[in-house]
Nucleic acid binder design. Sequence first.
DNA 1: CGTGGCATGTAAACGGTTACATGATTTA
DNA 2: TAAATCATGTAACCGTTTACATGCCACG
Lengths: 201, 201
Amino acid sequence: MSHNRTAYVILGGLSIQSNLSGYELHKAIEENFGSFWGESYGQIYPTLKRLAAEGLIVPSNSISASRKRRQQYSLTDAGRACLREWLALPFQNDPPRNEFLLKLFFGREAAPGVALTHVRELQERNRRMLAGLEGIDKMARANQPRDPNMPYWMLTLGLGIALTRAALDWGESALAQLSSLQQVAAHGAQPAGEGPAEDKG
Amino acid sequence: MSHNRTAYVILGGLSIQSNLSGYELHKAIEENFGSFWGESYGQIYPTLKRLAAEGLIVPSNSISASRKRRQQYSLTDAGRACLREWLALPFQNDPPRNEFLLKLFFGREAAPGVALTHVRELQERNRRMLAGLEGIDKMARANQPRDPNMPYWMLTLGLGIALTRAALDWGESALAQLSSLQQVAAHGAQPAGEGPAEDKG
DNA sequence: CGTGGCATGTAAACGGTTACATGATTTA
DNA sequence: TAAATCATGTAACCGTTTACATGCCACG
């Protein structure tokens, strides 16, 4: 009777909109909070079955979808209660894993241009990310101006945008620093990529 | 012959300092990049064995530690080459999972104070995080002023600090918005925690 | 009628954490 | 010599991704 977080994402999704199938949930998750959460079909479908068996959701096909061979679900009262209980619990810090930062940290071990390449790539991804988030922001303001969920959705969007902007700013200065570092290395100084690194042990 | 990222963290750690044991690696990872990476003993020890079997690292006890019943390792040339190869590969975006944002997104479903509580908690964690990062920054500048790794370490630290500051700024404004939202809810408007939410499907 | 994409589902593998077991070393 | 903590290791479990299998539906 304990649930993983996939279960709560599903309950949460169904709390916003009824009559969603696994496929639709997957799409909704990607669209609405793809920037801070992800779920795979391999998680979603079994979890739907389980939640239904536990009575937290019920199969409930809308008329429009009944012909389309897909099983939709809706939240039960028990499901809603379960979701609220979880929402009130302290959130857990997800284990930190940032491969970009890891590679940057070991940057001196690589050839001089490697770190620079990674930062450029990060900038590109973040520019795309920012454009996407700002697009969602615009859409949301236009289409659901007075949805009671809006304040919360805007706050999550706001954090995403703020963090992405901060990362982009950092990236600019990082590019400058790495460039000048490469300049120095190209002159007399020993490039990092050659020979064993010194040992501080 | 394929490696998970634990292997590369270990190779990277040993590239900076030789003669490290599993225990010391664990501590070093936590101290040096705990803010963006984590490893458990359950990963570290088996991986050490495997890397040694593959010849990427070698058992190499320093004299100072030989009495302390602990197995230390050092990087081989093959290990260093393997690390460099990986460093040059494009970094992968780690799957986004932020439970705080998830709970905030579903905030309307919870009682009015819940989101506020979560944001306050986030602020506290981020203040601690910032203090820790700034402490490391200070220490590093003082102790290893001309280590050739320094530029890279400072960059990673810089991103961490920039992101944490941005999150703290966002938090302040979020607290204000949520407070006024709660004020409104406390008056005539129907609090979110009552009755089923409307269905847009 | 056939093909491409929509939709659902499952099995296996993987990466990782947790809990546990154990012994050695230090310190009081 | 007792307690704390240092240090290594393993087995079980968990959550998740991946690859695969399958059938339906719409459209040409």
